[in-house]
């Protein structure tokens, strides 16, 4: 095929903490084919040009959430971003914005995991049910109320799209809030009030200034901005009504 002669330049943000003071760009020439993903481009570099390049990847089909990168300054899953959309111009790939870089394209995601763990991402049943009683009934409409928010693959593109997270790493942020909302909206769950403490906290939803880019870049149409902003309203209600309600909302 004549295409095997075509090449594309991929510029990679490199960083090796053992030798580099700061990240720097390095350009590679990679054979181009029109069905080649950015991830395949990076794999080509690793296999043929520089074995020391580090990046995360696994499923190749946009479901495991590993391979998020900045591609020409925008957060993308590199497995479903294609070089043909940039060819013949040079493509620049960098580690996801707003996260510390461990090495090359590998970010430190420990903070994200802490947030995920902090939101109580599991069913706290409204009514206990034994296995012998079978499944909880949940109509397609009830499923629909949270299904979109359960589609988050934790790829963190939304964090790379959120300047408020970049400016304040304590902000719970879009994906974790979407997941929190997913459990609040589940007809089987009864712990929305417990989760309110975090929603309404200084680390919570009010860090968001409705930039909305998180939802633009989400590869799974989760619309995390929506989850965050619905919870602003919920938190505001809780703030003003806590004195009226006998249960008093959260602390």
């Amino acid at each position: 095929m004549s295409e095997s002669q075509k090449t594309i330049e991929i510029e990679v943000l490199r960083y090796n903490p053992e030798t580099d003071q700061a990240p720097h760009l390095q350009v590679f020439q990679v054979p181009f084919a029109d069905d080649m993903s950015v991830l395949q481009g990076a794999q080509y570099i690793k296999d043929h040009l520089d074995g020391s390049l580090s990046f995360r990847w696994s499923c190749r089909m946009a479901i495991c959430g590993s391979c998020g990168m900045m591609v020409n300054g925008e957060p993308h899953l590199s497995c479903q971003t294609f070089l043909r959309d940039y060819y013949p111009a040079r493509v620049r790939i960098e580690a996801l914005s707003h996260f510390p870089i461990e090495r090359d394209l590998v970010i430190n995601m420990e903070g994200f995991i802490d947030k995920l763990e902090s939101i109580q991402p599991y069913i706290i049943p409204k009514e206990k049910r034994s296995l012998a009683q079978g499944e909880y009934l949940q109509t397609p409409e009830q499923l629909n109320a949270y299904e979109q928010f359960s589609s988050c693959i934790n790829c963190m593109l939304c964090y790379a799209a959120c300047p408020q997270f970049g400016l304040n790493a304590d902000f719970v942020g879009p994906a974790a809030m979407a997941l929190l909302h997913r459990y609040n909206m589940d007809s089987r769950d009864g712990a929305a009030e417990e989760r309110m403490e975090l929603v309404a906290a200084e680390e919570g939803v009010f860090n968001c200034t409705a930039v909305g880019y998180c939802s633009e870049v989400c590869p799974k149409q989760v619309d995390p901005a929506n989850a965050v902003n619905i919870n602003k309203t919920n938190a505001a209600k809780d703030y003003f009504l806590r004195f009226l309600s006998p249960k008093g909302g959260s602390k």
Binding site: Y122, I123, P125, R129, L131, E135, Y136, L137, Q138, T139, P140, Q142, L143, Y146, E147, S150, Y183, D186, R188, D189
Partner: peptide
């Protein structure tokens, strides 16, 4: 299901 898996449902839940 009790742990929250969003299984697809029939109309009656």
């Amino acid at each position: 299901e009790h742990w929250g898996c969003p299984w697809s449902r029939t109309e009656d839940g």
